[in-house]
Design a protein around this nucleic acid. Structure first.
Length: 419
DNA sequence: TCTGGGGTCCTAGGACCC
DNA sequence: TCTGGGGTCCTAGGACCC
């Protein structure tokens, strides 16, 4: 049996933890740059606000409907996520953190009734962190996903759906919308729609060879998992990242190379910091530029350039240098650029670094410098110490409705006043 | 006017090897 | 006249997830 713990409307719920006055009211959270809707409370969903909808399209509705809007505050969400995971970890033998708001958990050695255990987990997370969750328990991860959706949907389940008897599973699959199955995305969803298949059971009834031929082994896994055959294993240790990237859409179009170089330098140093956080080094650095894809009247351009390093590194200085070289290769004047990004790849553990016999770099010295950089920025705040190439003005996006970093910045702690 | 960000895995086809 | 078999690596594109 696997459990899945899924936070309800996670970002919206995080905002409510420190704004209890908003419980029961419509709340939405916006993407970076206040571009799109990326999270909605149930009340906001009920108003017809769509996931991923551009903010400007729903602005009138929001003004009329008294919806509270927040700019994305990932510092807050990341921290509350860690607390949810820590609480869950204290209650079960092992967990696999699947995303910022979801974790699978292991139920080996746990005694029945498992649905009661699930409800205890839900209550404890609610009490310790303040985030409401839905728990699904079932024989495979794909079925546990379905169970957690049912727990979210039906209040009478009290936050936990334990789905294990074959006849119960069959009954659920006969009604569960195929498009909502984990592993069936937009493309396959449309394909099944055209075929007239609506429920998970109808998919399960397809011949195995057909699924293999049309959807590959990934589709076959989903097909088998729905039938209780475990194909997606439980991984407690997250695998090392294969790629680290930072990219942003700009609030306005940028045309000059100098400005783009400063921005790319900043993205590169953010990437490098993440890389060190993982205890890894990389040996490829890519930069890319993108014009405004929503402006069909303007010439479009997407170019990416890859720099191969002579030896793996986690040094901000080297990664920034390479990212700027790559940027100069892709930059062409005469375009209005709307987005840029930096990608690190060929990532390996820093402890297994393959040095170069002729390297001019003193690794020890460089690593001490990076430790100083990280320590200063950790204790005095992000961006206290930067490389000169980033310039003095950090990249700013639109964040008009940003809430405080209640849990990760001393200056922004919530103050409770005596009555 | 305004349209996000960060990932993974699989597959097919081409180039190349012996 | 007749022209093999077995493999690897790389890349682009497509699918998916949150």
């Amino acid at each position: 049996m696997y459990g899945l713990c899924d936070c309800n409307n996670f970002y919206a719920s995080c905002e409510r933890v420190f704004r209890p006055d908003l419980v029961g009211r419509p709340v939405v959270v916006l993407s970076n740059n206040d571009g799109c809707i990326i999270a909605r409370s149930n009340e906001a969903k009920a108003l017809g606000i769509g996931m991923g909808q551009p903010f400007y399209q729903v602005r009138p509705l929001i003004e009329r409907g008294q919806v509270t809007v927040f700019s994305a505050n990932f510092a807050l969400y990341g921290d509350l996520s860690r607390r949810v995971m820590a609480t869950l970890r204290s209650l079960v033998p092992g967990i696999e953190v699947y995303s910022i708001d979801e974790a699978f958990f292991d139920l080996r050695g746990m005694t029945e009734p498992l649905d009661e255990l699930g409800r205890t987990i839900g209550r404890t997370i609610r009490r310790n962190v303040g985030i409401p969750v839905s728990i699904g328990i079932a024989p495979t991860k794909t079925l546990a996903k379905i169970a957690s959706k049912l727990a979210k949907q039906y209040p009478r389940l009290n936050g936990c759906c334990y789905m294990h008897r074959p006849e119960d599973i069959a009954k659920v699959l006969g009604r569960f919308p195929l498009q909502e199955v984990w592993g069936i995305g937009r493309r396959y969803g449309r394909m099944f729609d055209r075929m007239g298949l609506r429920t998970a059971q109808q998919f399960v009834d397809l011949p195995q060879e057909w699924v293999r031929a049309r959807m590959g082994v990934a589709g076959l896994r989903t097909w088998s998992e729905l039938q209780g055959v475990e194909c997606i294993s439980f991984e407690q240790l997250p695998p090392r990242k294969q790629q680290i990237t930072i990219s942003r859409t700009f609030p306005r179009e940028i045309t000059t190379r100098e400005e783009l170089e400063r921005i790319v330098a900043e993205f590169a140093s953010m990437c490098a910091e993440k890389l060190r956080g993982e205890g890894s080094v990389c040996s490829e650095v890519q930069s890319y530029l993108l014009t405004n894809r929503h402006r069909e009247d303007q010439p479009q351009r997407y170019e990416t350039s890859l720099q191969l390093l002579s030896e793996p590194t986690d040094s901000t200085l080297e990664i920034v240098r390479q990212a700027r070289i790559a940027l100069r290769q892709v930059f062409l004047p005469g375009y209005g650029y709307k987005k840029a990004g930096v990608i690190l790849s060929q990532i390996t553990p820093a402890s297994e670094r393959q040095g170069s016999l002729f390297s001019p770099v003193d690794i020890q010295k460089q690593s001490r410098l990076m430790q100083v950089l990280d320590t200063v920025n950790k204790t005095h705040g992000k961006g206290t110490l930067v490389v000169a190439a980033q310039g003095t003005e950090p990249f700013r996006m639109n964040r008009e409705h940003l809430s405080p970093r209640y849990t990760t910045d001393w200056k922004e702690l919530l103050v409770v006043k005596p009555r």
